[in-house]
């Protein structure tokens, strides 16, 4: 049976970037196949190499704010040289590329949301928060394909806001479109 892990990525100190991490923190309460990858970047490789199927939740800046997309991660990397990279900001595609370069035959999907603001200390945008339920539905569908039942209860948006509150040390309010990037504590 395939070993499956759903991984939320991101850093709530950078506005919408923290969405995947916060959603994973919420879902981890009910599902042992969900993991909060935080902004650990390449530090996650050891853990991820234990799985056959990875389903990432992350923002994708190429999408319009609030849009949700399901993306399949294809291709592989062969390593010929090295250059610069921030070890914390490793997108799912590169993590999967590394895993395949390490010889792990991993199947990978990404449930992505278009961010409105990635500014330091900004709260999550209203567009991204309102995408939470759509992301959950897509996750449910994908995981059901592997025989897994995604469980959750309560209000996902409120739980995500609480996650930002823990990270930012204050009660954030979601920003409305047009004001994204401004902190409103």
């Amino acid at each position: 049976m395939a070993r499956v892990l759903a991984v939320g990525l991101g850093n709530p100190l950078y506005g919408d970037d923290g969405f995947g991490s916060c959603l994973a923190q919420y879902l981890m309460q009910f599902n042992d196949f969900v993991y909060d990858g935080d902004a650990h970047g390449v530090g996650l490789l050891g853990l991820l190499s234990d799985y056959d199927v990875l389903v990432f939740v992350d923002v994708d800046a190429s999408l319009p704010p609030g849009a949700v997309a399901v993306e399949r991660i294809e291709g592989s990397l062969t390593v010929r040289e090295t250059r610069l990279l921030d070890a914390h900001r490793v997108p799912p595609s590169l993590l999967v590329g590394y895993l395949r370069a390490m010889g792990r035959d991993v199947e990978a999907r990404l449930v992505a949301v278009g961010p409105a603001s990635l500014e330091l200390l900004s709260p999550p945008s209203r567009q991204v928060l309102s995408a939470a339920r759509a992301v959950l539905r897509e996750l449910e569908d994908i995981l059901a394909g592997y025989g897994l039942v995604l469980r959750w209860e309560g209000d996902p948006e409120a739980e995500i806001l609480r996650c930002y509150e823990r990270a930012l040390g204050a009660r954030p309010r979601a920003t409305a479109p047009g004001t994204a990037g401004r902190t409103s504590f």
Binding site: S76, T78, E81
Partner: peptide, 12 residues
């Protein structure tokens, strides 16, 4: 470092 693939590519 970033491992850069020559001939390889990861795409979505």
């Amino acid at each position: 470092f970033e491992a850069r693939g020559e001939g390889g590519r990861v795409y979505k």
